[in-house]
C-alpha cells in the first residue's frame, strides 16, 4: 500500500506531492514552543490559555 501511495503521487504530477494537511479541527493544540514573543504582555504561550487564539503562520517573503 505504501509503494502504491508513493507511485501514484509520482504518476500524477511527476513530482513527489505533499500529503494533504491533516484536518486538525477538533483536536487539541500540540505543546507550543515559541521564542521571542513580542508585542504582547504575555510572557509565554501558556499565558494565552483560556483565550480564543488566532494563530497565523507567516513569512517575510
Amino acid at each position: 500500500m505504501l509503494t502504491s501511495l508513493l507511485l501514484s503521487a509520482l504518476a500524477v504530477t511527476g513530482q513527489p506531492v505533499a500529503p494533504l494537511a491533516a484536518d486538525k479541527v477538533g483536536t487539541q493544540l500540540p505543546v507550543v514552543e515559541i521564542e521571542g514573543l513580542t508585542q504582547s504582555p504575555a510572557s509565554s504561550f501558556e499565558e494565552l490559555t483560556g483565550r480564543l487564539v488566532l494563530i497565523e503562520f507567516f513569512a517575510y517573503w
Binding site: A21, V32, E33, I34, T38, F45, I55, E56, F57
Partner: peptide
C-alpha cells in the same frame, strides 16, 4: 513570535500563510 518547536510541521502546514483558530 518564532516557531522554534515545529508547531507548523506538527499541524501539517504545507503552505504559508495558514491560520488556525484555537
Amino acid at each position: 513570535a518564532y516557531d522554534r518547536g515545529g508547531l507548523a510541521k506538527q499541524l501539517g502546514v504545507r503552505g504559508i500563510p495558514a491560520s488556525f483558530l484555537v
